[in-house]
Design a protein around this nucleic acid. Structure first.
Lengths: 218, 218
DNA sequence: ACGCTTCCGTCGGCCAGCCGACACTCCTGC
DNA sequence: GCAGGAGTGTCGGCTGGCCGACGGAAGCGT
């Protein structure tokens, strides 16, 4: 699930025409620094050059992460979300009007934007689907399966998953609580579906079984 | 809440340059007809000319409406959602590739697309926010307040709201059940916040009080 | 080593809201 | 009229999962 409103490329700049970055300014973001908040409509578009950022919603008592932005991801501050540096990061930034002008000027980029748009929609819809239809076990299972497909490395004992996220962070991505995630992981560990490998990595032992649990209950 | 992934204009074609519709084909949709489903990636963009369409997600046991499309709204079949005619409707349709080409050719349209994109994101995020942070009373209250701002007509007794939706339909928009909506409305009726006016309309008597209940609990 | 801090595991209580069931009211066509 | 169907109101039981609490384990600075 999740990973959300973001277009992700293995190579940070694949797909952009040479010189497309002209007119962007560079910007550094410190760890924990708040880059955007709802309300303040900055109207900027940015592309992540290095580091990771967290996009999230917040109510008085809770936070829900929409996405972890990684190098190559493109996003805009023109959404009612918080964006915060998860670690030191650097960005290319441009005003949204100038960005639109660039799009008009570079014909090849419009289709690319459509792709980005499509992916953003897919991810948003996927998030809504999770929150509305799936219970917590299914959400967690789906998250792990997707991460395995994305970042997992196949080994003799199973698929090694470097999450780089704590229990709390995962809960936040799934719209649930630390406790629920914790107890589920340990339950599955007892069932030999997976096992912890150090502090922030998992070894998936039975991927198909996990996939089965990622389906909506019923 | 909701109303969702859609850009809505009071005037169906405001903002589009003259001749922009060249290349679109016309299409009729019957009441109840399924226009798009997840899986089948039709890759079309369409604009609603007349009638209403429902955009929704479905699991085995439940449905969740993302939006009711109305004349002037623009949408794409390239999302994992169902789109179904709510009443007889007619559309302008074009392939997504051709649409992208038009964007590249008509420089003035790209900024318009950015606006549309922004609105789509806002609405999607708003939906997620509701599902994650607000309880059912808050969701319903917010829905009614927004509808009042959108379609309500001020009268001597309060604000008259022609919903054109049954209890079940509203529940579907809010991601809850018929029963919950029903009991809430009647509870509020007892508190004199509102009253039923015929089968599918409400008279809002105390809009501020409703607005107060639309905030996240806590 | 040691404290200190941060993170993780587990338990029990509690409650919003889903579900099934059923009666009632309203429209509609014969 | 008067069936029949669709939509509506209401109740009680049941449960997923949030919350608070607390103890244990792992990292880290000195």
């Amino acid at each position: 699930m999740v990973m959300a409103m973001v277009a992700s490329h293995p190579d940070p700049l694949a797909g952009f025409p040479a010189g497309f970055l002209d007119g962007f300014t560079s910007r550094e973001v410190a760890k924990g620094q708040l880059l955007a908040t709802p309300g303040q409509a900055l109207n900027q578009v940015f592309i992540v050059r290095s580091g990771r950022l967290r996009v999230y919603l917040a109510s008085d008592a809770r936070e829900l992460s929409l996405a972890i932005l990684e190098p190559g991801d493109i996003f805009t501050t023109h959404t009612p979300t918080f964006v915060r540096g998860l670690e030191p990061a650097s960005l290319w930034v441009i005003g949204i009007r100038e960005f639109a002008a660039k799009l008009a000027g570079a014909p090849g980029v419009a289709p690319l934007m459509m792709k980005v748009l499509g992916r953003i929609l897919d991810n948003a819809v996927s998030l809504v689907e999770d929150l509305a239809f799936r219970d917590v076990p299914a959400r967690l299972a789906r998250f792990l399966v997707r991460q395995a497909a994305r970042r997992g490395e196949q080994g003799p004992e199973g698929c090694l998953l470097p999450l780089d996220l704590g229990t709390e962070d995962i809960a936040c991505l799934l719209g649930t609580t630390r406790q629920s995630v914790s107890s589920l992981i340990n339950q599955w560990q007892r069932e030999d579906l997976l096992s912890r490998r150090g502090r922030r990595a998992l070894l998936i032992h039975d991927l198909p079984a996990l996939a089965a649990r990622s389906l909506a209950p019923g």
